[in-house]
């Protein structure tokens, strides 16, 4: 194997980042997706559009605004300093925040669609059987939304693994902290180290293909949709 210690550290970091991003987004994204799927208020449309923005914006736009906003003169930067967290760029936490914004639509959209498809009937049925709202959520809604949950999990994870533009702009390329696979690969290519670049790029391609193939198979079996 031609991967060095640097490459392995980047791989480990990437999967740590993708796992945490996915877990946090599912936790925060599920209630948000639920609200978006049910609310008739015009404001929910605004939030819906904001949530979808990272899908169409170039990552450099997101990276640039994060860099400026999280900097020592930026409003969020002053907030994080006041909270005693220091400045977020060039740190793993900063990268986590950026990844969550960047992958947000990949969590929200499948969940929102799943919730919408369920409709009100099963919930009303549960209510007539005197199930509490919390009970209904865990025993009726989540099992019915399982296909959407699986799609959201897989897509959020895979999309975070493939993140590049945002990380390049606010990561600062620190080994073990912010140097993820895509940045490590970029460095190899820039330094004309094509052998190492091939190993990483090939690995990424294989990983992404496997994940998407797995998702297709699950969808065919009707487990995920």
């Amino acid at each position: 194997m031609l991967l060095g210690a640097d490459d392995w550290s980047a791989i480990g970091l990437t999967f740590k980042l993708a796992s945490l991003t996915t877990a946090l987004l599912l936790l925060l994204g599920t209630p948000l997706a639920w609200w978006l799927s049910r609310s008739q208020h015009w404001f929910s449309k605004v939030i819906g559009a904001v949530v979808t923005l990272p899908l169409v914006l170039p990552p450099t736009v997101l990276g640039f605004y994060l860099l400026v906003a999280l900097g020592s003169q930026g409003p969020l930067g002053q907030l994080t300093i006041a909270l005693g967290w220091g400045l977020l760029p060039f740190s793993f936490s900063g990268l986590l925040l950026a990844s969550m914004l960047y992958s947000l639509p990949f969590t929200i959209q499948p969940l929102q669609q799943a919730f919408q498809a369920i409709g009100n009937t099963p919930l009303e049925a549960a209510a007539t059987l005197r199930a509490s709202p919390l009970d209904t959520f865990f025993t009726v809604l989540l099992p019915l939304a399982k296909p959407g949950l699986i799609t959201a999990t897989v897509m959020t994870f895979a999309h975070t693994v493939g993140e590049f533009g945002v990380v390049l702009m606010i990561g600062g390329n620190i080994p073990g902290k912010t140097r993820v696979i895509s940045v490590q690969l970029y460095d190899h290519v820039e330094a004309l180290e094509y052998t190492q670049a091939h190993w990483l790029a090939g690995g990424m391609l294989l990983f992404s293909f496997t994940v998407l193939l797995g998702l297709q198979l699950l969808q065919k079996r009707g487990v995920a949709r």
């Binding site: 860099l67 999280l70 900097g71 020592s72 003169q73 930026g74 400045l87 760029p89 600062g172």
Partner: peptide, 9 residues
């Protein structure tokens, strides 16, 4: 330069 100019470094 951009890292320093934005106050992040």
């Amino acid at each position: 330069h951009q890292f320093i100019a934005t106050g992040n470094a």
